[in-house]
Nucleic acid binder design. Structure first.
Ligand SMILES: Nc1ncnc2c1ncn2[C@@H]1O[C@H](COP(=O)(O)OP(=O)(O)OP(=O)(O)O)[C@@H](O)[C@H]1O
Length: 1038
DNA sequence: TCGCTTGATGTTTTT
DNA sequence: CATCAAGCGA
């Protein structure tokens, strides 16, 4: 009996069959050739599997993502599914972008855009925008980002006089929400002790409601609710595909089920070993739950690894195996064994950074430039440890880009403008209003604000309404306003109302988001405000404002292109269901703001031929590196407390994190551990790397890179192997062809004193390190390689002007875009920094390093590339979608030469190109179909006022051509002759070396952009208090 | 009551 | 470097 049950539905669990390939047919079908090309047998089976529910479980580098991509294409081209009936969910925006690109390559331009593809959150948002009204969600709901949430929580706790910590409360609420436990439910089951928390939870939800906001969890929850109550919203969905399934939480799982409710066609790929989001309530259990929920789920395992050299896999395996609860699985290399990974000990974090740079230089040189900057990544447990590395890279002129860390849109000066936009878009956004109600200061102080808030609370109304009423005198406000407060609020109200009017104005009057930003900047006298508020910092901050302008301009231009933006926003039409129409300007603003909230990282697709100058080393958190790969990977700071992180509560997850990091490497992997961290605490190497026997899997120093090693490296990377003669030349011409500058035991070069060497964590390594230890003597202390960037530099990687462009780029004569403006401003800064350096040389007091910089981001990527309108076929009407894609359509060939390897996984991040003239020149706007939309033909042109302002600033600063000269000349910070020992920390000096300058291309997460390699180093380091030698501040130190 | 300065404080990972 | 509390002058 059981079997009938089981058997019967079996067939119904198969895909409707157009082609039902068996294995012999697999390679036969012609149109499928391209699809299956470059896939192994298991992958092909997965791609063409007739099962409705399919799990592809496989270790890193086995081509899961590739397989998923191919399956999407297969469903479209071979199974005849319409792309708009397919939902593809990824975990990050970056992954979504990349997948879209890959699918585009397989199914041809256009189709991929019609997929419902994005992160869970963005897909959920799309549904809520279209159908939210069905469950009482107002159309213009905003998204509460983390700072919104935190502000709300803090406010509640403060008002109630509770003692719980806002951060913890937030995390707990999120955790409850991720499990669909509402405030009401929680209130019922709560323990007495949790009363406070329960109250905060309820009030938080209430606050979100009043502000018409959804937080991240709400997006998922409410979407699930929508689909539960109105399943017809997904009645068209024929297939659902999920990437990185191991990182889904239970609401996401439910969403997946709901999406696939009708056809029950689900493909997921994942790897339990790579589950690193448990802290965000991801549940690996979902794998089993899926098997239960979709009886007959097929599981396919992929085994071969196509990414990494064998030795890397072995070491990674050795790490992950330490988790004993894990079923044993092997990683099967398809490449040669390669060089063994390196596990390197160094004296300090600073030395570690310098060593890292020297290894980049060395490997580049010895491989005769087989490796470009793009091929290197530095992966970190936490962004905080990036500083040494950033400055070391910067000091040697290596361009880099930082992913993660403080985000562009979180910078206060940017956030401030955004908050105003949000208020204009949605005045009831209490917290946005609260944040800027007195910024710039307009005479509305704490007391007034408090009074207004209380009143709002009492009347259960929004802050905006109270303010509006009291200003317009409709209500005799309960709060007495001082004359100045009253005036200030009136100004604010007028500002917002005018903004709204502009936004909704009719036809010609209608303002684009870009216009609005300009309007705000002008009306708020932002420049003046920033100057006053941040005198030392003004240039940077203003540059950020300019960047925001540029971003908005990009958006505006993209929308002027028309359809794409609407297309990505709208869902397919479903009979009998009304969908909210999208097209007006207001929606553009809403979408713009939403995308900012949903993009921890935004990136732009890089042009096909990234020219050399865009090359950069990537610095990223391990989390953000998931799913990516690089030829050479460094994982510094492998000590207890960093990885596993001291605050982590799941050690296994930390181990997996290390595993994920290690498996990003294709050819070379370096782990390293400083004996002292930057807080000058002594460190113990991560116990993941000190297990018995693991030492055998690592080398203690960087690879020697003789020619056969380089050749193998080339093979692993599927690149052409360098000429032998070149290799020999490179080697003989290189000063330090071996990684021997730093003693292998982690002591300082030439220093006999090894007092930190005491005991505990060396015992087992003793054997390993013992015989090599005295090698130290050979080190006559040759010049540190990192400095090479400053040298005349004929030897080292001179192919790469990029490394030096930081220093030598010149500012293009007369461009008036925000971006170029910014470059000038940055130049001013470097000038300032120079003065700083001089000052410090004069008075060499130890200076504390200050924290890293900002980045910028490009929101544009959400709207597609602002390409010049080409001969593109006229788009079918986007709002009413008929099946505009003939099934017979033959899939266009992919770009003839799909490179066999993906040389740079992060290509898509780049933007540098985006700042190119091409981009700066606003694409010729072709008339759009959207009736309501006002065209801007020259959005990027700086307004005269701005220009003047900036020019003034520039002229008050000394000529800025100087810094560049400086940067490309011999290293100033320390006498070039100074032996390496100089960097030894003087006991009691408290000091690390003084930073010389803040490297050029710091990009943060979000950051994708332009500030690019072109800028003469914008960000400052070591500025902080010490910066401003000429200012009144000086005296303190002595 | 507001605006500004000063000093003390603190830092995982991200949709 | 950002945030926050405390304190002072207007
Ligand atoms: N059959 C194959 N032949 C050659 N190369 C392949 C094959 N399958 C995948 N690759 C390559 O292997 C690399 C890893 O692929 P992919 O990113 O899809 O792996 P993954 O399983 O998703 O990895 P991760 O779990 O780390 O995200 C890519 O460079 C991809 O092009």
């Amino acid at each position: 009996m059981a079997w009938t049950r089981e058997f019967a539905p079996r067939w119904s669990r198969l895909l409707p069959e157009r082609v039902f390939p068996n294995s012999s047919e697999l390679d036969a079908t012609n149109s499928m050739d391209k699809l299956l090309d470059g896939l192994n047998r298991a992958q092909r089976l997965a791609v063409t599997s007739p099962s409705l529910a399919l799990q592809v479980l496989a270790p890193p580098g086995s081509g899961k993502t590739k397989t998923l991509t191919a399956r999407v294409s297969y469903l479209i081209t071979e199974r005849g599914l319409q792309p708009w009936n397919i939902i593809v969910c990824t975990f990050t925006v970056k992954a979504a972008k990349e997948m879209k690109e890959r699918i585009k390559g397989l199914v041809g331009d256009g189709l991929e855009k019609k997929l419902i593809l994005g992160t869970f959150h963005s897909v959920a948002r799309r549904f809520l925008v279209s159908y939210g009204n069905l469950i009482g969600i107002e159309k213009n709901f905003g998204i509460a980002d983390m700072s919104d949430s935190k502000a709300i929580i803090t406010r509640i706790i403060k008002r109630q006089g509770f003692s719980i910590e806002p951060g913890a409360a937030g995390a707990r609420m999120s955790s409850l929400k991720a499990k669909s436990m509402s405030a009401e439910q929680y209130a019922i089951t709560r323990k007495a002790a949790e009363q406070e928390f329960s109250a905060v939870y309820s009030e938080y939800e209430e606050a979100l409601r009043t502000s018409n906001l959804l937080d991240y969890d709400d997006l998922l929850l409410r979407c699930a609710q929508l689909l539960r109550e109105h399943p017809q919203c997904v009645s068209n969905i024929e297939a659902v595909l999920i990437d990185e399934f191991q990182d889904t939480n239970s609401v996401q799982f439910e969403l997946m089920c709901l999406f696939s409710r009708f056809k029950k066609n689900v493909t997921i790929v994942g790897d339990p070993d790579q589950s690193i989001y448990g802290w965000r309530n991801a549940e690996i259990k979902n794998l089993e739950r899926m098997e239960k929920r979709f009886p007959g789920t097929d599981v396919i395992h992929l085994e071969e690894n196509y990414r990494s050299a064998g030795a890397i896999l072995q070491s990674a395996q050795k790490v992950i195996e330490q988790d004993e609860s894990r079923p044993s699985k092997a990683l099967k290399p398809t490449f040669g064994i390669g060089d063994r990974p390196v596990l390197r000990k160094l004296p300090t974090a600073d030395a570690e950074a310098k060593w890292l740079v020297s290894e980049i230089r060395r490997t580049q040189a010895l491989s005769a430039d087989l490796l470009k900057f793009n091929d290197f990544a530095v992966l970190l447990r936490s962004a905080a440890v990036s500083r040494h590395i950033e400055s070391a890279l910067g000091n040697s002129g290596i361009p880099y880009r930082m992913v993660g860390g403080t985000k562009f849109f979180d910078r206060i000066e940017v956030k401030m403008i955004l908050d105003y936009l949000r208020i204009i878009n949605q005045p009831d956004h209490n917290d946005a209003l609260l944040r800027v109600i007195n910024i710039p200061t307009r005479g509305v102080g704490d007391v007034t604000v408090k009074g207004l808030i209380d009143e709002a609370e009492r009347k259960r109304s929004s802050l905006w309404k109270i303010v509006l009423d009291s200003v317009q005198g409709k209500t005799r406000s309960d709060t007495k306003l001082s004359a100045q407060a009253s005036k200030g609020l009136t100004d604010l109200v007028n500002l917002v109302l005018t903004g709204q009017k502009k936004l909704t104005g009719k036809d010609d009057q209608q303002a684009s988001p870009f216009d609005l930003v300009e309007y705000l900047i002008k009306k708020l006298e932002l420049s003046k405000y920033l100057q006053k508020r941040y005198p030392d910092d003004y240039e940077t901050r203003w540059a950020n404002v300019e960047e925001l302008k540029a971003q908005t301009a990009d958006l505006t231009a993209a929308m002027a292109q028309g359809e794409e933006f609407v297309e990505e926003e709208v869902l397919p039409e479903i009979e009998g269901l009304e969908q909210r129409l999208i097209n007006a300007n207001e929606d553009a603003l809403t979408l713009f703001l939403a995308n900012i909230a949903l993009s921890s990282e935004v990136q732009r697709k890089q042009d096909e031929n990234p020219d050399e100058t865009q090359q950069h080393v990537t610095i990223s958190t391990i989390h953000a590196a998931k799913g990516l790969e690089w030829p050479v990977v460094f994982i510094p700071a492998c000590y207890e407390g960093s990885i596993p992180h001291s605050r982590a509560d799941d050690i296994d997850e930390e181990r997996r994190l290390l595993y994920v990091g290690m498996t990003r490497a294709q050819a070379l992997l370096y782990l390293s551990c400083p004996n002292k961290n930057s807080q000058s605490g002594e460190t113990t190497m991560s116990h993941f790397l000190t297990q018995r026997g693991i030492g055998a899997f690592f080398e203690t120093q960087g690879p020697k890179l003789y020619d056969d090693a380089v050749n193998e490296l080339a093979r692993t990377l599927r690149r052409e192997k360098p000429d032998l003669k070149q290799l020999i030349e490179a080697r003989s011409g290189y000063e330090t062809p071996e990684d021997t500058h730093y003693p292998l035991d982690g002591t300082f070069p030439k220093s006999e004193n090894a007092r930190w060497d005491q005991g505990k964590n060396i015992d087992f390594k003793e054997g390993l390190y013992a015989n090599k230890r005295r090698r130290t003597d050979d080190q006559s202390g040759g010049p540190m390689v990192p400095v090479a960037g400053f040298m005349p530099a004929s030897k080292v990687t001179m192919q790469n002007p990029a490394g030096f462009s930081t220093a030598s780029m010149s500012i293009p004569p007369k461009i008036t875009t925000a971006a170029s403006r910014m470059e000038e401003l940055e130049a001013v800064q470097s000038e300032a920094r120079l003065r700083d350096i001089d000052a410090r040389k004069a008075a060499p007091a130890p200076i504390k390093r200050s924290k890293a910089a900002q980045g910028s981001a490009n929101i544009m990527s959400f709207f597609g590339k602002p390409k010049v309108a080409t001969d593109a076929a006229p788009h079918p009407a986007t709002l009413t979608r008929t099946s505009s894609v003939p099934e017979t359509q033959i899939v266009p060939k992919p770009p003839a030469s799909m490179p066999r390897y993906v040389s740079n996984p992060l290509n898509d991040i780049s933007n540098v190109s985006s700042r190119d003239p091409q981009r700066n020149a606003i694409p010729p706007t072709k008339p759009i179909q959207l009736p309501n939309f006002k065209l801007r033909t020259t959005p990027l042109t700086t307004k005269p006022t701005t220009t003047k302002r900036v020019e003034q600033d520039v002229t008050t600063a000394p000529s800025f051509s100087k810094p560049y000269t400086f940067l490309s000349s011999p290293p100033p910070p320390e006498p070039p002759s100074s032996p390496p020992d100089q960097e030894v920390i003087r006991p009691g000096g408290g000091g690390e070396r003084i930073e010389t300058f803040r490297p050029a291309t710091t990009f943060h997460a979000t950051s994708v952009t332009q500030v690019g390699n072109k800028i003469g180093t914008g960000r400052r380091l070591g500025m902080g208090r010490s910066f401003k030698p000429w200012s009144a501040r000086g005296g303190r130190g002595g």
